[in-house]
Amino acid sequence: MNSAMFIQHLLNSLTLGSLYALIAIGYTMVYGILRLINFAHSEIFMLGAYFVFWGVTLFSLPWPLAMLLSVVFTAGLGILVDRVAYRPLRDAPRISALISAIGVSFFLQNVAIVFFQAIPRAVYRPAWLENPIILGEVRLLPLTLFVPALSLLLMLGLVYVVYRTKTGLGMRAISKDIETSYLMGVPVNRIIAITFGIGSALAAASGIMWALRYPQLQPIMGGIPGFKAFIAAVFGGIGSIQGAVIGGLVLGFIEIMTVAFFPDLAGYRDAFAFILLIAILLYKPTGLLGARQEDKV
């Protein structure tokens, strides 16, 4: 393998890893606060992608506007899911919310099948993403630069919100102790809603970029990326945002590089994530950066 190819693989890893990381952040933030695995997150990812292509094809919106609107719309949808399906169960045993999450996941998937039909649809990429950039021997798809750059920007924005704003302080507090936060006057339900909004916005961004990278849409498209991102979150230490980012990047790297160096294993691509999951559950169940979570009573 020459160095030009290696650079290409590296950028591909970074692209895939960023996409996993953006989804994983939503899993980890919600889990960090509610100890809930939001199974509907995969569907949020899928819907974010559909909304853009709806906007572009049905309403002839320009791409950037369609993306922005989709992200905003999907964030609202995430907030709605929390409001309708999780918030009424806040005081119920945790398994109830988990079952509700599975229900929402099925519901959204089937709504998508009704509205968008089950047949996969091809995505037509805008021209500015089609023409490869050629640097000497390296041939780059614009997306392999665009995706990591935009993801980085989004993650920096997230870090700013979490560590530099009052809302972020509230998030960090309720992820440790909801009841005491509430006693101190933190509007817990509003902060949780914002958390769902942010997580869903990032998942939508990931879904949109995913559909550009692998240009096809279908209602079940969230399943595998969503599951892998969940594994990435567990690997990084669920509840930790930094962990989710590292987990996503590591998973992207393993997937791309294994296929690059051992092309015979390409068929087992999806299995790597599961191997990683089993390994982490066996040797370090709290993940790379995860703290021991004492169970909430």
Binding site: L169, A173, K176, T180
Partner: peptide, 21 residues
């Protein structure tokens, strides 16, 4: 609350800021 329940992962200053939420 009983048992103090300060936020162990936040700084002293942040704990105080939180009280003023």
């Amino acid at each position: 609350p009983e048992g103090r329940r300060i936020f162990p992962h936040l700084s002293v200053f942040e704990n105080l800021q939180l009280g003023a939420y």
